[in-house]
């Protein structure tokens, strides 16, 4: 079994790096997961990650990318709710990679 090791505790993840227990997530762990993904977390990254966590808390799913774009636009405006800008932040896919950093399961429909 593999996991992210932090301060002597191990947070288990699946073979793709998604946390097994979303309850173990915290900001430090998010930074660690991001580092594994070669991402330096900036305020813009956090905006997306926090948005995903709020969405998950409310609806129990991670949104599909086009929904993420639509909802980010509604909440933060056109520059933030932009597919290209989101891919610039998360090159392997905003939903897929940002969800991993947010400690959420892989979005429904992603393979």
């Amino acid at each position: 079994m593999s996991g992210y090791e932090m301060n002597g505790t191990i947070a288990e993840h699946d073979e793709e790096g998604y946390l097994k227990d979303i309850g173990q997530w915290n900001a430090d762990l998010a930074n660690l997961i991001a580092k594994n993904e070669n991402i330096d977390m900036t305020a813009d990254h956090w905006e997306v990650v926090n948005f995903l966590r709020d969405y998950y808390e409310e609806y129990q799913i991670a949104p599909a990318v086009r929904i993420l774009v639509k909802e980010m636009t509604k909440k933060f405006g056109k520059e933030k709710g932009d597919q290209k800008a989101l891919y610039a932040l998360f090159p392997y896919g905003p939903a897929k990679q940002a969800c991993k950093i947010a400690g959420l399961p892989k979005p429904t429909g992603c393979v």
């Binding site: 969405y55 129990q60 929904i67 639509k70």
Partner: peptide
């Protein structure tokens, strides 16, 4: 089990 009943409220977004 996961409480997926909350997810029905996301359907409007979709």
């Amino acid at each position: 089990v996961k409480n997926f009943s909350k997810t029905y409220r996301a359907l409007g977004d979709y």
